[in-house]
Design a protein around this nucleic acid. Structure first.
Lengths: 106, 106
DNA sequence: TGCTAATATAAGCAAGTTCTAATCTAGAAT
DNA sequence: ATTCTAGATTAGAACTTGCTTATATTAGCA
């Protein structure tokens, strides 16, 4: 059925690559619950400061997350609701209930 | 909110990586419409025979697709309905209506 | 003003991915 | 038997990613 536009495939695979990494996916999962500052993300993900910062930069440049300075901390949030949807589906697929305690808690 | 199991993150990111490539994603998109043989997938994706075969092998080993010999051809199909769901969401996100002609046509 | 905490950036190496070209296998057809 | 077709496998080069270490930036504070 109608050929799938090559450009869309390209963009979609690029988007997937942007979240197809343990640290980055972990960040997104944590950000689902609301904005967090870098230091908390370091603790949450277990990545090193520099490493996490680089992963954040990558997702920032892809428009997946955005940041905002509040006092001494920089807070990150999910900027693109579509990625939130994607992570939701992933959670649904890969998390055996445990991850979805109430199913509604923005 | 409750810590996300590291193992799940790991599996999810591995699953994402398995489809985060133009050729592999293209294959999955085409297989959504039903099984196809390798030769048709070569034409559909534009990849070389060897290259496509390698991508198919990777997804086969991840349990995403399965194959079946019919006469001289080997037919591939999506073996894991969860990945079908994932691709659906991707299409929804990245394809501007054009890709979803009727929305129901297994 | 100089220090410290919080984060970003840069450089370089190690590891992983993807592609091409060549070879291999199995079944059909001649 | 040989040849053809469909597809898989292997090897290695080229490219990409990810990590570590070191350095830069910037705001608040003493």
């Amino acid at each position: 059925m109608d050929v799938i536009p090559k450009e869309n495939i390209q963009q979609a695979s690029e988007g997937l690559r942007a979240i197809a990494h343990e640290v980055r996916l972990s960040v997104l999962c944590h950000l689902m619950a609301g904005p967090m500052c870098v230091n908390d993300l370091i603790k949450a993900t277990g990545a090193s400061q520099s490493n996490l910062s680089q992963h954040l930069a990558k997702m920032r440049m892809m428009g997946i997350i955005s940041n905002e300075k509040r006092g001494q901390q920089v807070y990150y949030r999910i900027a693109n609701p579509e990625f939130l949807e994607l992570v939701h589906v992933l959670k649904h697929i890969y998390c055996p209930e445990a991850c979805l305690p109430a199913d509604g808690e923005a």
